[in-house]
Design a protein around this nucleic acid. Structure first.
Lengths: 353, 353
DNA sequence: GACGGGCGTCGAATCGATTCGATAGTCTGT
DNA sequence: ACAGACTATCGAATCGATTCGACGCCCGTC
């Protein structure tokens, strides 16, 4: 039995030599492209097995063929923050399914934000996806465009050459707000995801929205502002998680009863869950004393209620992003696809007390 | 002003030609390796800017230098399942930090399990990491070994050539069990993560543990079995999440009071949270009527208790995996590093009623 | 004025495959 | 028996960089 030589790397040349054929023929055997006699193919494959050849070097293959076989998936600075929300996971999962079916894999890249070394500069990718609505102004975009790499996003970054999955954030948020108005609520409040640089959870003025670099948060906030009674309070959270939702809830609810909102529109289900926790801690019952709406309709098994929320199937959204990526790779121009969402009424909203 | 030519790709050759230097000199400018006169370097950089050259092609560069600049991070079949647990996210985050510092990026690969196309076959990576204790028998391992790609793992896959971060699962689980015994508990039960192919949450016999392909779940179960009174019941969950933890809890607790366990050792915090939910739904108070322990010490803001659990800092574990990867890439042989964990007593355990 | 030593630049080989056009050999039809 | 079509194989160019050894030039020294 022949020992595979572990010392130096086995290349197609070695395999071809051992099988007594030319390199080109050996290549045809592995790519399965050209016509090769069965006997020859068998000989090549035997030689490959004997030498411990694990298939063509992906680098060399990619270089020649001009495709890297991977796309960059760009998430926020820290992975744990990016994936803390079950919605983000669902999107990523859908995207992974679609990319997997195309035979391309995902290069996970954390966007360092402003400064710092460019994390995609040294990596070969065929396309870049911003699956979560990030900042409008990522510095990576210029680099990617310069390299001629197609970009697909979901709300951000904003650029002509970026294909988008478009959600009517404004309309959805307005629908949730109108739902509360229709139930008879008049004192409403809004809990927003971060709008700019992370700051501790605090009240914001509607006028500050124009400075936001997160279009999804901005548009949801505007949907609320444009629908709710003028002057309704807004709170911007530091992070879109349960703890900060709870902090926002305390900020809004721990006040005199006559000025306490009876309905709160939150920009995500996690924030809504936090608001509900804050309410319960203050002895308020949901929905009898306070109505709460969320956004995304994620599965929260530990929350023993059905949130009134905006149904946004994350997995399907991820698949659509994958589909847009596929089209860009096929040479089609950047287009935007609408992604419909709708209000789902659960048991966290009711007429005001 | 010169228009960058968008039509055909700009290469180093074009830049060199425009700057009036040889390709090798231009290469030296970008790699910063050799001595280049300041004036020449400036001319090359200007030419690059004019032509819209975004730096050396990563593929060509990698091929020549023999390093891909990426490592494969291999997770379970579906990303959403792999990252459902906050612990997994913490590990991944720590790993990402370390890899980021090394300038290598992460190729996220979903392990299809048994059959299916090999998802790493076509991709250039310098190493492979199995950051979550997966199956002992991944078919990817043989392929990776054949390509001579170093592998690092955390419990699985089991192979001489795989460097591991080793947690004393058995000892930690035994410590949690002993904590309950010390409190005076005599009727104990165990809730396990999946041990083999996914089956609906059900009771298992200790004898079945030897067939498990998940070493971490198996060893934790054994730690319980070897410490708890003989015959203490075991439940294997279908998935390690809150819902299945709750199902397991019902299975164990919804019985006559005299045969109901007073202490339950769960293999993860999410499972423990589910058990607590099941207990509360049955009118049992934790810890007065039932003590519950978890594993991992993850942050569960929606759980308004402090779990008694095994402290296992996920981020540090991820960083250690990154560190092992770095060493393998530096040519060091595969070694295993112990990773210490310890019992943290919270407010979910107390003497039995 | 001849000689030795840096320094900056260049030409050519190389990484490991893919692919196109050419060539030799085999078969079919009349 | 020969033209023509087809099949299997091969040689060489190519993808876009990196890198090594060589070469020319300028300077200081004896």
């Amino acid at each position: 039995m022949t020992r595979p030589r572990q010392t130096s790397k086995v290349t197609l040349r070695d395999v071809a030599a051992r099988a007594g054929v030319s390199i080109s023929t050996a290549s045809l055997v592995f790519s399965g492209r050209g016509p090769v006699a069965d006997a020859t193919a068998a000989r090549v494959r035997t030689a490959a097995t004997d030498l411990g050849y694990a298939g063509p070097d992906p680098l060399a293959s990619s270089l020649r063929q001009g495709r890297a076989g991977a796309v960059a998936v760009i998430v926020e600075e820290r992975l744990r923050d990016a994936f803390r929300d079950p919605f983000a996971l669902a999107v990523l999962d859908g995207l992974a399914q679609e990319l997997d079916a195309m035979g391309t894999s995902m290069l996970l890249v954390a966007d360092p934000g402003g400064d710092g070394a460019n994390p995609v500069a040294g990596h070969a990718v065929d396309a870049a996806v911003f699956p979560l609505c990030g900042r409008t102004d990522s510095p990576l975009v210029d680099h990617l465009l310069a390299r001629g790499i197609p970009i697909v996003g979901s709300g951000a970054p904003v650029h002509d050459a970026v294909g988008h999955v478009v959600v009517d954030e404004h309309g959805a948020s307005a629908a949730a707000t109108r739902h509360l108005l229709d139930l008879g609520h008049r004192r409403l409040a809004h809990v927003s995801m971060p709008l700019g640089r992370a700051r501790p959870t605090h009240r914001v003025d509607a006028a500050e929205l124009s400075g936001s670099v997160h279009p999804d948060a901005r548009d949801r906030a505007r949907g609320f502002v444009d629908t709710a009674p003028a002057g309704s309070p807004l709170v911007e959270t530091e992070r879109p998680d349960v703890a900060q939702g709870e902090a926002a809830g305390r900020l809004l609810l721990d006040v005199a009863a006559h000025e306490r909102p009876t309905g709160i529109v939150a920009q995500s289900d996690l924030l809504a869950a936090g608001v509900i926790r804050a309410a319960e801690a203050l002895g308020l019952r949901v929905p009898q004393d306070l109505s709460v709406t969320g956004f995304d309709a994620v599965d929260l098994p530990w929350l023993d209620r059905t949130l009134t929320t905006i149904e946004q199937p994350g997995e399907a959204k991820g698949r659509l992003l994958g589909e847009l990526t596929r089209r860009r790779l096929a040479g089609e121009p950047a287009t935007s696809e609408p992604f419909p969402v709708s209000l789902r009424v659960g048991d966290t909203t009711a007429p005001p007390p």
